[in-house]
């Protein structure tokens, strides 16, 4: 269906957890990672001894109070930021396509490129020809419902449409791993709902390794196989929760008692942390 090899799931990724004979295949691994931002007046410890293994083909959600270092952790996993101490490993790069495709919290699309050019940007940098990259980009634009706007510039789009452009770019690039930083955070409730359904569908079809940061517990439960709960700054992993809902998943799971229970428990656990982060910042 698509012309790019990089976008087809690898054979060992087709099972949901990627479990091989010798245990799960690990995509990202962080060992005792700490991150300090140095500033002349005040240094900020964003992460403090975080250890995390992300299985290939899994969907992991990171939840935590704002300012706890979620974005920082994601950047470190994706190699955009260096850990101050600790080790990080990411999957080996097998082609010109970057291993991790990012969806940024905001300002991720380039104002000087059209929607199509934005979506094709990763492929362009990877050296794909114009026909190849545009064909792939168009497929993804269609998928996120932006075909009509292929030749529009970002300033002509709503916030939700920009975010869909960013998501389409991440998928179109064909990286085996997706790192998403509150990709739906800026959307209105209805659009957000729609995009959540689309994300479930996209992931179930592609089975990429996804790490998604969100501040919405429901979203994490709805999308993830696993939820990493982080403490207030300095960010540490407070809980590591397995989400029991099966795939293919449907947005209806939100109305099950199990969902409500988990949501309640996670909020109980998160409440103290949010309080801390509100009091101290």
């Amino acid at each position: 269906m698509y012309s790019l090899d990089a976008r087809k799931p690898r054979a060992d990724e087709t099972t949901s957890a990627g479990v091989g004979a010798d245990g799960p295949d690990i995509a990202y691994s962080a060992r005792d990672v700490s991150k300090v931002f140095y500033a002349p007046d005040r240094s900020v410890t964003a992460l403090d001894g975080v250890s995390l293994d992300v299985e290939a083909g899994s969907f992991t959600c990171i939840v935590g109070p704002s300012g706890c270092g979620k974005s920082t952790l994601l950047r470190i996993l994706g190699g955009l930021e260096q850990a101050t101490i600790g080790q990080v490993t990411a999957p080996e790069r097998k082609s010109a396509v970057p291993v991790s495709a990012f969806v940024f919290q905001e300002h991720g699309v380039f104002p000087w490129f059209t929607v199509l050019e934005n979506v094709a940007f990763g492929l362009r940098m990877a050296g794909f020809s114009r026909e190849e990259r545009n064909a792939t980009a168009r497929t993804w634009l269609e998928y996120v419902g932006l075909s009509e706007f292929a030749n529009s510039y970002p300033h002509q789009l709503s916030g939700g449409m920009k975010q869909r452009t960013a998501i389409a770019r991440a998928f179109a690039t064909g990286s085996p791993c997706l790192l998403m930083d509150e990709p739906l955070g800026a959307l209105d409730a209805q659009t957000r709902r729609l995009m959540q359904e689309q994300l479930i569908e996209l992931w179930e079809r592609e089975r990429k390794t996804v790490v998604l940061v969100t501040h919405a517990i429901e979203e994490a439960l709805l999308l993830g196989d696993r939820i990493i709960l982080m403490s207030a700054r300095p960010g540490q992993i407070k809980e590591d929760i397995k989400v029991p809902f099966d795939h293919p998943r449907n947005i209806d799971i939100e109305s099950t008692p199990e969902f409500a229970d988990m949501k309640h428990n996670i909020w109980e656990s998160l409440r103290d942390e949010v309080q801390k982060s509100v009091v101290f910042s």
Binding site: G78, L80, A96, P98, S100, A101, F102, F104, E106, H107, G108, V109, F110, F121, G122, R124, M125, A126, R169, T173
Partner: peptide, 19 residues
């Protein structure tokens, strides 16, 4: 943030400058 996005998608050196 725009520079970071570009870097994340593989634009470095001359291509970062150009695009």
């Amino acid at each position: 943030r725009v520079l970071e996005a570009a870097t994340a998608y593989g634009a470095t050196g001359w291509r970062l400058f150009r695009y």
